Amino acid sequence: MANVRVERTDDGGFRAVNGRGAEVKIGGAKDDGVFSPVELLLAAVGGCNIVTVEPLTAQRGHRLLRLAMTVESEKVESNKLGPVTVTYDVEVPSEKADEVFRAVAERVHEKYCTVSRSLSDGTEVKLELSQPDETESD
């Protein structure tokens, strides 16, 4: 099971922390030096794709000279994103490497990227509200 804890920090900001201790600062879209929640979603799509494409391409004997991507989306409503577009920026050493990269990137997008597939399939997000801690009164 994957999980992160999202919490308010002492300075009034927010952060997400995973079980391995890695931390990402979160803020509003206009806050400097932090990711907005929407940007984190886009980063998750990009990260899932790129960390899967790179080793699969290399396993097939083709190390890409440059591998980067841009992931973007626009809001179609005040609280809803439209389609997410992943655009790769690659430099390949040969035509064969380009063929392999394209085939791998397509397969990763269609079958292997958990984040993209979850968004495409409309994974349900559930809300559970815990009971507040009751403090003893004197």
Score class of each variant (00 low, 15 high):
50 I>T: 13
72 E>Q: 14
34 V>F: 04
134 E>R: 11
6 V>L: 10
11 D>H: 05
34 V>L: 06
85 T>M: 06
60 R>A: 02
136 E>R: 12
38 V>Q: 01
86 V>G: 14
25 K>H: 03
110 E>W: 05
8 R>I: 13
77 E>S: 03
1 M>W: 10
90 V>Y: 05
89 D>G: 07
20 R>F: 01
29 A>R: 11
128 E>Y: 08
120 S>G: 15
101 F>W: 07
76 V>M: 14
88 Y>R: 10
114 T>N: 08
120 S>Y: 04
28 G>D: 08
124 E>C: 05
97 A>G: 00
118 S>M: 10
118 S>W: 00
109 H>Q: 11
44 A>S: 15
118 S>A: 14
38 V>I: 12
125 V>R: 07
97 A>F: 00
126 K>P: 01
101 F>V: 03
67 L>K: 03
48 C>H: 11
55 P>L: 15
65 L>M: 02
17 V>G: 03
135 T>Y: 11
74 E>C: 09
104 V>F: 09
72 E>P: 09
112 Y>H: 14
105 A>T: 11
87 T>P: 05
104 V>L: 09
87 T>E: 12
103 A>W: 05
9 T>K: 12
16 A>T: 05
32 D>Y: 05
13 G>V: 00
136 E>V: 15
58 A>V: 09
66 R>I: 14
107 R>I: 06
13 G>W: 08
126 K>D: 10
57 T>Q: 05
101 F>Q: 07
135 T>N: 08
76 V>A: 01
73 S>N: 02
46 G>T: 14
45 V>M: 11
3 N>G: 13
39 E>P: 09
9 T>G: 06
20 R>D: 03
120 S>P: 04
98 D>A: 10
124 E>Q: 13
57 T>I: 05
129 L>N: 09
99 E>K: 03
112 Y>T: 07
64 L>W: 01
89 D>N: 07
10 D>S: 12
40 L>W: 10
59 Q>F: 10
36 S>M: 05
77 E>A: 09
36 S>F: 11
38 V>W: 00
4 V>N: 15
28 G>V: 04
29 A>H: 08
11 D>A: 07
92 V>L: 00
25 K>Q: 06
67 L>Q: 03
41 L>N: 03
105 A>V: 11
25 K>A: 08
84 V>R: 08
55 P>F: 09
22 A>Y: 12
27 G>R: 00
85 T>E: 12
18 N>F: 10
87 T>W: 07
118 S>E: 01
56 L>F: 08
60 R>T: 07
130 S>D: 15
16 A>Y: 00
68 A>P: 04
99 E>I: 01
58 A>K: 14
74 E>G: 14
129 L>R: 10
56 L>G: 04
117 R>A: 09
92 V>H: 02
87 T>Y: 02
2 A>G: 15
4 V>C: 15
125 V>G: 10
111 K>F: 11
86 V>C: 15
34 V>A: 10
81 L>S: 10
7 E>M: 14
31 D>T: 15
113 C>S: 09
52 T>V: 12
137 S>K: 12
45 V>T: 04
92 V>D: 00
